[in-house]
Amino acid sequence: MNTKGFLYGLRQSMTIGVGYAPVALTFGILSLKSGLTVWESGFMSLFVFAGASQFIAIQLIGQGATIWVIGITTLIVNIRHILMSFSMIRFFSGISLGKLVLLAQGITDESFVLNSKLLEEIPTSEERSKVALGVNLGSFSFWVVFTFIGAWLGNKINIIFSGFDFALLALFIVLTISAVNRDNLLTYLIAGLFAVFFRMLIPGKAYLLLSVILASALGAWVGQRKRAN
């Protein structure tokens, strides 16, 4: 039997990398404009590794916001990661704490969605953890390296190929095809409706967390009732 491991995960992460590279480049370039140095910019990507919150943070830093405002804003934007790692536990029963603590840093919207698809098809926890490590480390490396490159190049380059704006969205759309089935279609549609509704209603990124929780809970509740009958 063919076993899938770290290298398989790393190869799969290239798709995320194509989407991350231009975004990270842009982050590097913009962070210098907000007054960060190359190292500060790179270290933010290394330690935080959460795109949306980083863009918001450099904007706030540029405006002279206090550390607490930035901290609370980051929490609001990134609290949804709780849901993602909560959802991933089912793949990793019996995996050592040391490995889990390492895997945790690599959890993003993109790596989570890709892992949720890939790991479903892999039989053992041990293999799953290796593949996930490859996906996460690959995505992480793209993000950090291209932040540094962006910050080093500073204002010397212009990204003119607008196709990069669609890269991550395309990834999500392709993954939708294999992720959505008859059992979870309802949850998908409700989540989409909620997301549009809440985004028009509430400023910021809170709509993400809210829609995911409500739609998953509703979908689970409906599913339980169906099974009970």
Binding site: M84, I89, V113, F172, T176, N184, G192
Partner: peptide, 20 residues
């Protein structure tokens, strides 16, 4: 319920990231 809930998180997140 909790198991169904966490299994539905990936599709729910996909929808909230894509549809809007």
């Amino acid at each position: 319920f909790l198991k169904s809930f966490i299994q539905l998180i990936p599709v729910a997140l996909l929808a909230t990231l894509v549809i809007p």
